[in-house]
Design a protein around this nucleic acid. Structure first.
Length: 763
RNA sequence: GCGCGCUUAGCUCAGUUGGUAGAGCAUUCCCUUGACGUGGGAAGGGUCGUAGGUUCAAGUCCUACAGCGCGCACCA
């Protein structure tokens, strides 16, 4: 233990002198953190012997995105997790908490691209792949360092010797290994399908990366026009909010039982729609609702997921009329359009929509125009309007049966069973329902992204699409002429491996050495990434290791601003936890985030609350001073108490009243220990606050003043014991919540002999 | 459409397995140089969303409804 900082220039312990001044978190916290870190106790392998007897406790830090700095939500996460880690450590568990950061592929690239565009007016294509990646790496290095320092400032007792990054070499090997294995099992495939295309980010995204926004839109009802051969008006009208996509229609679908349309089923028509020749077949499909619109649906297989699926059922052709920049690739151009207002080709979809409507009106085909509300799909990261496009992409098959440890199963089933069997417990429980609901609606997971930052897909091609010209492997194939796939993987593919890629997997030797930590004991994270991350970790771990990634999931809520808005950069309502720490101290920030906020519940930031806990820190400090000053002549007594002398051996030395106080504290300790085991930190913190202030300080300390002034020797002796007995336990109990100040006081009272972080939790 | 959450003091929220309401902040009054960059004491303020039900007893369990928020699906 480093003594130097605890001594003044004359080599005397200066703790008492510090104790004479008000508590100053700024000069205390960094020094205490350094002491902890130097002790090596953040690493479970280096813990004192006592602290390993309770079995392992392991937890990964949900790696923060390297897009920017942390916000108060991250601070809440770090506070809860550090409480868990410190409690486990004090309970004698071999405690491992692994730090790391997430490359957050799309998000990070978007941030850096935006910055370059703003400052230099250049696009990623101007820079090229290598240069852009260099720029991103530089950005990531900076943000990483900021994030790490924030984690330290909050006092997190995390094992820095095992820090990982989702995009480092070890994690890359894990990713390639997982990909290869899934491919070999037929669970990863390449398919030509309609995917969610983000024209703004120029990449595909998964279903989960879409956000919906309700907007007003016009629903147009019209007929396609006259049949080119017979001149007959195509008899069925359809309704749509996107007339411009109808240039890509290849069928009209009606309900098979709809009497109005039965006679037309199987007929085929040819027409020219807004300058684009189309061929339509009338098909019957039970998914069409007779009651909606005209009861008939124009089928656009290339630009709608639902229509694509319908086209698969009926063997309909696919016709793409919109390109990657969300511009029309078909229809009237400047030359063929009868009027300039009808030009469609080359226009953005929104403008093309107006052109098509203008044309419909001119042709007398438009029957109805009504305003409706509907959801439009936006890319979560870029805000771009999603354009469903047919593309050749890589997918994880969630419904495909495969052989898993001798049993037929699917990935969906594996995900479901991990929770339904109780192997994974979710707190609060209600999220289990949400989880199942998500799984029931799950479709194949599109994992390829057309961005440059991320894990490159471990697939190589030679000219031609023949199977012998495609190579899937952990390492590049030998021989000339192989080109690696340009695409990268969805960032959640690598984070899905996090609980075991951080423990050495796929290196068998290393992973075996860490086997006691997996499945991890606890996964603490925000409920907003239940699907993105928690579900994907369960998928990967169950598939690759045949076991759950963690036993318990504790979901915390979102921290919102005072107007109940989500904290986000675009709103500019982010509060830097560091500012709050400077102002009020890390302990106060932690307490204010934790008290009264149960799992799964969102909370609001409130500076007044942080301030209140700074006052509490000050109160605690002054209780410490009082105890110190009134027990100072009994160094031996102090060390005796702080060596955890059993209370039963002290009972006879307590007066009747003091024994009652001691018993009351024991009762409280038993109570809160039970609540700690149930993860009810929000209650424990409040109870300790209340006890320290309104029982210990307001009652016992006030009463002690009289005793130390006028009491008998027996009473004085008893009271000294009592104060030490209570305060010792209280400091231990408060330590997970307010680690800095409790450590500092504890060192003062034990003359720098003991480190509270590795002291025993006493129920 | 399916599902979830919230509705408790002016504000922000607790309230473990049912036993006649709590905390912080805010407000008012009084006291205090004290271990306290203040602290202590006291006060005011709640038909616990509405209506039923179960029970000796319901903020707490059940049903219905309302308002707000959210997730998923649909979105022709």
């Amino acid at each position: 233990m480093d003594k130097e900082n605890d001594m003044d220039n004359n080599g005397k312990p200066n703790i008492p002198e510090r104790f004479l001044k008000p508590y100053d978190p700024a000069t205390t916290e960094d020094r205490v953190y350094e002491m902890w870190e130097k002790s090596g106790y953040f690493n479970p392998d280096k813990l004192p012997e006592r602290n390993g007897k309770g079995g392992p406790f392991s937890m990964v830090l949900p790696p923060p995105n390297v897009t920017g700095q942390l916000h108060l939500g991250s601070a809440l996460m770090l506070a809860i997790e550090d409480i868990m880690a410190r409690y486990a450590r004090m309970k004698g568990k071999k405690t491992l908490w692994i730090p790391g950061t997430d490359h957050a592929a799309i998000a990070t690239q978007a941030v850096v691209e935006k910055e370059i565009q703003k400052k230099e007016g250049k696009s990623r294509h101007d820079l090229g792949r290598d240069e852009l990646l260099r720029r991103i790496d530089a950005h990531v290095k900076t943000t990483h360092d900021v994030i790490v320092s924030q984690i330290r400032k909050l006092g997190c007792s995390i094992d820095w010797s095992r820090e990982a990054f989702t995009l480092d070499d070890k994690r890359n090997l894990a990713v390639r290994t997982a990909f290869k294995r899934m491919y070999d099992d037929g669970l990863i495939y390449r398919g030509f399908r309609v995917v969610n295309w983000d024209p703004k980010g120029q990449t595909t995204i998964s279903d989960d990366e879409i956000e919906y926004e309700t907007r007003k839109a016009k629903l147009y009802t019209f007929k396609y026009g006259k049949d080119a051969k017979t001149g007959e008006l195509i008899p069925i009208a359809i309704s749509t909010t996107r007339p411009e996509t109808k240039l890509g229609d290849t069928a009209i679908a009606v309900n098979p039982d709809d009497a109005r349309y039965k006679p037309f089923i199987s007929r085929e028509f040819d027409a020219v729609f807004a300058g684009e020749p189309i061929h339509l077949k009338i098909v019957a499909d039970p998914s069409v609702e007779p009651g909606f619109g005209t009861g008939a649906l124009g089928v656009t297989p290339a630009h709608s997921m639902i229509d694509w699926e319908m086209a698969q059922r009926h063997g309909l052709p696919l016709k793409q009329v919109i390109g990657e920049y969300a511009r029309m690739t078909a229809g009237f151009d400047e030359h063929s359009a009868p009027a300039p207002a009808f030009v469609v080709k080359g226009k953005k979809v929104a403008e093309a929509r107006e052109a098509v409507v203008a044309w419909l009106k001119a042709e007398g085909l438009l029957e109805k125009e009504e305003e409706i509300e509907h959801n439009i799909a936006l890319a979560q990261r870029t805000g771009g309007v999603i354009e469903p496009l047919p593309k050749l992409q890589w997918f994880v098959a969630v419904n495909k049966e495969f052989d898993h440890n001798g049993q037929k199963t699917t990935l969906k089933k594996l995900m479901k069973e991990a929770v339904s069997s109780g192997a994974v417990k979710i707190i609060p429980e209600r999220f289990e329902k949400v989880y199942f609901n998500w799984i029931d609606n799950l479709r194949d997971w599109c994992i390829s992204r057309q961005i440059w930052y991320g894990h490159r897909i471990p697939v190589w091609y030679r000219e031609g699409e023949a199977p012998e010209n495609i190579f899937i492997g952990i390492d590049a194939p030998e021989g000339d002429g192989w080109m690696q796939d340009d695409d990268t993987l969805d960032t959640w593919f690598s984070s899905g491996l996090w609980t075991f890629s951080t423990l050495g997997w796929p290196d068998e030797k290393e992973f075996k050495a860490n086997k006691e930590y997996h499945p991890t004991t606890m996964l603490e994270t925000g409920w907003d990434i239940l699907f993105f991350w928690v579900a994907r970790m369960i998928l990967m771990s169950e598939y690759l290791l045949g076991e759950a990634p963690f036993k318990t999931v504790y979901l915390h809520g979102l921290v919102r601003d005072t107007k109940n808005r989500k904290i986000s950069k675009s709103l500019g309502n982010n509060i830097d936890p560091l500012d709050m720490i400077v102002k009020y101290g890390a302990d106060a920030v932690r307490m204010s985030l934790v008290v009264g906020v149960g799992p799964g519940n969102d909370s609001k930031i409130d500076e007044a609350k942080i301030k209140a806990y700074k006052l509490f820190a000050n109160k605690l400090w002054n209780i410490g001073r009082f105890v110190f000053e009134n027990t100072g002549d009994g160094e031996d007594l102090r060390s005796a108490i702080f060596d955890l002398r059993p209370k039963s051996s002290m009972d006879s030395e307590f007066t009747k009243k003091d024994k009652e106080y001691a018993d009351r504290l024991d009762e409280l300790m038993a109570e809160i220990t039970g609540e700690m085991d149930e993860y009810k930190f929000y209650i424990v913190a409040e109870k300790l606050y209340h006890y320290a202030w309104h029982e210990l300080a307001d009652v016992i300390l006030e009463e002690s003043k009289g005793i130390f002034r006028d009491g008998s020797e027996i009473e004085k002796k008893s009271r000294r014991r009592l104060l030490l007995y209570i305060f010792d336990k209280l400091l231990r109990a408060l330590h997970p919540f307010m680690p800095y100040i409790t450590e500092e006081i504890y060192r003062a009272l034990t003359s720098g002999q003991k480190m509270l972080m590795v002291e025993e939790w006493v129920a």
